Simulated assay, not measured.
Amino acid sequence: MNYVELIQLQAEQVFADKEKAAAWLNKPQPALEGMTSTPFSSSEAGCVAVNWHL
């Protein structure tokens, strides 16, 4: 499992809904410099940052 998949799984657990998780993951996040979580989730440090914001 890669970092992006880990974040997807975590988001699904947080939101208890795959659609809501996907919406959050694909929405630009001000805390992530206005980017979506996917670019940040591709590295260990980015995965930690996105997970923190969840």
Rank of each mutant, 00 (worst) to 15 (best):
residue 24 W to M: 02
residue 1 M to P: 12
residue 5 E to W: 03
residue 10 Q to E: 13
residue 35 M to K: 15
residue 21 A to L: 06
residue 33 E to M: 14
residue 49 A to C: 02
residue 13 Q to D: 15
residue 22 A to E: 09
residue 44 E to H: 11
residue 32 L to G: 01
residue 9 L to R: 12
residue 9 L to W: 08
residue 51 N to R: 08
residue 22 A to Q: 13
residue 4 V to K: 11
residue 51 N to F: 14
residue 27 K to M: 12
residue 40 F to G: 07
residue 41 S to L: 02
residue 19 E to L: 15
residue 43 S to R: 04
residue 34 G to W: 11
residue 39 P to T: 06
residue 5 E to I: 03
residue 35 M to P: 00
residue 15 F to S: 06
residue 32 L to I: 01
residue 36 T to I: 15
residue 33 E to T: 05
residue 41 S to C: 11
residue 38 T to K: 11
residue 50 V to R: 05
residue 8 Q to M: 07
residue 18 K to G: 01
residue 15 F to W: 12
residue 12 E to A: 10
residue 51 N to V: 07
residue 22 A to T: 12
residue 43 S to T: 15
residue 29 Q to H: 15
residue 31 A to W: 06
residue 12 E to H: 05
residue 51 N to C: 07
residue 5 E to K: 06
residue 3 Y to P: 00
residue 5 E to V: 04
residue 49 A to I: 00
residue 23 A to P: 02
residue 41 S to V: 00
residue 4 V to T: 05
residue 45 A to T: 00
residue 33 E to V: 06
residue 45 A to L: 11
residue 54 L to F: 11
residue 7 I to M: 04
residue 29 Q to P: 05
residue 8 Q to D: 09
residue 25 L to T: 02
residue 24 W to P: 00
residue 19 E to P: 04
residue 7 I to H: 05
residue 21 A to W: 04
residue 2 N to D: 08
residue 39 P to R: 01
residue 47 C to K: 06
residue 12 E to P: 00
